[in-house]
Design a protein around this nucleic acid. Structure first.
Length: 331
DNA sequence: GGGCCCGCAGGG
DNA sequence: CCCTGCGGGCCC
């Protein structure tokens, strides 16, 4: 008797939504932000470095963190035969335009047409700003903002983001250490994370591990990602780092990627969305065919940062399924 | 579209 | 040194 995978997903998403809602309730009252123009939707005709008039947000531990750092075990002994259904993705890489796009800063180091090998070479004799250099000038293990990187900064690839020290790993979604906590995460979607919710100022995130990075016949271990094949745990270094962040309440840099299914996802590339706190950590059943456990985390954005760009045209499948009323999503 | 291969940055 | 990890390019 195969478990209804859609039902499981719905259940998990309801759980995630409840977690995020709790964050909202715990959230201290903040003065409403003046919102003159809700724009930033379809036609990013120019650069988008507005609204950041005052200086960068300092890397400061939030002072309103009084939540108990709970790791709740959620028993879910469900298994399923079906895999998570892939929903159609509207984003794609269609309108990739490097000549004029919604960049806050255009980096000439990498373009989509350049090969990673070339990209890894240093551009000789480019001294100066550092932003033009193909090497890192800031420490990615910093907690909080990276100097010179504004909220909203956009990159075409994870490599560029790494060079700017916002998120060091090229592939991994979590960067940090188990002793000090997480420095940064990337929200990049993916089938295994298909129950995660993104409300913009809050979101849920699935941990790392539990994958068998086998590879192919000739080349074992040549894969960088793979389907879930075992339970995740907080022993995993990445997950441990996020768990540590729940305790430390140090800010975590958040980058959203184009593959994320969210109205807050960039249409292409990767965008720095500012600093968040990891508020909770718990275990849940993952959106994998066998119901392996995953580590889950809830994030909450620190106040006082520029508003997130929104894709108004985005139809959130997630939002619909967790909204009890509408429910006419017959397929 | 999927399969395969690749370089890389971290951490143990 | 080894292994992991929500990339990305290329080929089919």
């Amino acid at each position: 008797m195969p478990i209804d995978f859609a039902a499981l997903r719905k259940k998990q998403m309801a759980e995630n939504a409840a977690r995020l809602k709790k964050l909202d309730l715990d959230h201290p009252i903040v003065p409403p932000r003046p919102k003159p123009t809700p724009k930033v939707a379809s036609k990013p005709s120019r650069k988008r470095k507005d609204s950041n008039t005052s200086g960068e947000l300092e890397a400061r531990p939030a002072k309103m963190a009084k939540n108990a750092s709970t790791v709740t075990e959620i028993d879910a002994s469900v298994a399923s035969e079906e895999g998570p259904r892939r929903s159609r993705r509207t984003s794609g890489r269609a309108s990739l335009n490097y000549n004029e796009s919604n960049l806050t800063r255009m980096s000439p180091r990498l373009t989509k047409t350049m090969r990673p090998q070339l990209a890894s070479k240093k551009l000789s004799g480019q001294g100066g700003s550092g932003l033009m250099l193909n090497k890192r000038v800031h420490d990615p293990k910093t907690f909080g903002a990276i100097p010179g990187i504004e909220v909203g900064t956009w990159w075409g690839s994870r490599q560029e983001c790494s060079i700017d020290a916002v998120h060091a790993p090229w592939v991994a979604g979590i960067s940090g250490s188990r002793t000090k906590g997480a420095n940064s995460v990337v929200l990049s979607g993916g089938g295994e994370y298909h129950d995660d919710l993104d409300m913009g100022h809050t979101f849920t995130y699935t941990g790392a591990g539990g994958r068998d990075l086998k590879g192919t016949a000739n080349k074992p271990k040549n894969l960088r990602t793979a389907a879930q094949s075992s339970d995740q745990s907080f022993e995993n270094a990445c997950n441990a780092a996020l768990l540590k962040s729940v305790k430390t309440q140090l800010p975590v840099r958040v980058v959203r990627g184009y593959k994320l299914e969210s109205r807050y996802a960039p249409e292409t590339g990767y965008r720095y969305d500012g600093l968040y706190l990891v508020k909770e950590a718990w275990m849940a059943t993952g959106m994998n065919p066998h119901g392996y456990k995953v580590c889950k985390f809830s994030f909450q954005r620190i106040d006082g940062q520029p508003d997130l760009p929104e894709r108004e045209d985005y139809e959130s499948e997630e939002e619909r399924s967790v909204t009890p009323e509408i429910e006419e999503t017959s397929d």
